[in-house]
Simulated assay, not measured.
Amino acid sequence: MPDVSQPAPDFTLPVTGGGDVTLSALKGAPVVLFFYPRDDTPGCTKESIGFSEHLEAFNAVGAKVFGLSRDTMAKHDKFAAKHGLSVPLLSDVDGKVTEDYGVWVEKNMYGKTSMGIERATYLIDATGNIANIWRKVKVPGHVEEVLEAVRAL
Rank of each mutant, 00 (worst) to 15 (best):
F11H: 14
G19C: 00
P9V: 07
V150R: 08
K96W: 08
Q6Y: 00
L153E: 01
K82V: 07
D92Y: 05
A80D: 02
A29K: 12
A152W: 12
A126F: 05
F11K: 14
P7V: 04
T98S: 12
D92Q: 08
K75D: 09
E47H: 07
G95L: 02
F66S: 04
P140M: 13
A60T: 11
E145L: 14
L85K: 12
L26T: 02
V31M: 05
G62N: 02
S114P: 00
D3L: 12
H54K: 15
P2D: 08
E148G: 14
A126Q: 10
K96H: 12
V65W: 11
V137T: 06
D10F: 07
K27D: 00
A57S: 14
L90C: 05
G128K: 09
T41D: 01
R119K: 06
L33K: 10
V61C: 14
C44E: 07
F11V: 11
T121D: 09
G95I: 02
G62W: 00
F34P: 06
E118A: 06
M109C: 00
N129R: 15
E148M: 13
V61R: 13
T121E: 05
V93P: 10
G95P: 01
V150H: 08
D100Q: 15
E56D: 15
E56T: 11
T45R: 09
D77C: 06
G102I: 07
H83A: 07
S114Y: 01
G62V: 01
T45H: 09
D77M: 01
V65Y: 07
K78D: 10
G50S: 14
S86I: 04
W134N: 13
D20Y: 06
H83F: 15
P9T: 08
F51R: 07
